[in-house]
């Protein structure tokens, strides 16, 4: 699996620390764990504990990809997706949902609001999440 990851052109960009990600996740422990993995892989990660904070960070500097939780204090993940759709600046940022919801209706709702993929936290390991992010970045940018 590692070989497959490294063979993606995106791997070189990640190695040069030039791929920026934003993660919106209210659980601090989960946030720390996934950031540790992503940073270890060479991504530049900015974190936000709420949707509002996430939108603000992205407005300052647009990332190449957003990892977004759904159940959040204040704005929900869906609200964030809607806000992004309305903004010229944020519209084109690909979003991967990272949530423990994940029934059909939730996945469909997120995708109809523009989410690229929907990963259920309890079903994916950090390594698998990284692989998926690299695949999506590769499709979009390479």
């Amino acid at each position: 699996m590692d070989q497959k990851q490294n063979s993606l052109p995106v791997a070189r960009a990640v190695e040069k620390n030039s791929v920026k990600l934003v993660i919106v996740e209210d659980d601090k422990f989960l946030r720390d764990l996934i950031i540790r993995k992503l940073s270890g892989e060479g991504f530049l990660v900015k974190e936000a504990a709420t949707g509002e904070e996430g939108l603000e960070i992205m407005r300052e500097e647009a990332p190449q990809l957003l990892l977004l939780d759904i159940l959040l204090p204040g704005l929900s993940g869906y609200d964030v997706l809607e806000a992004m759709q309305k903004s010229e600046q944020l519209k084109s940022i690909p979003v991967v949902m990272l949530s423990n919801l994940g029934q059909k209706e939730e996945v469909e709702r997120a995708k109809s609001l523009g989410a690229k993929d929907f990963l259920i936290k309890a079903k994916y390991t950090p390594g698998e999440i990284v692989t998926r992010i690299k695949e999506i970045l590769d499709e979009l940018y390479m």
């Binding site: 659980d27 422990f29 989960l30 764990l33 996934i34 540790r36 993995k37 423990n100 936290k121 309890a122 390991t125 950090p126 390594g127």
Partner: peptide, 12 residues
Amino acid sequence: TPLSALKWSLRL
């Protein structure tokens, strides 16, 4: 949610 945290930390 807590089970994901356990899964991720053990996996890391």
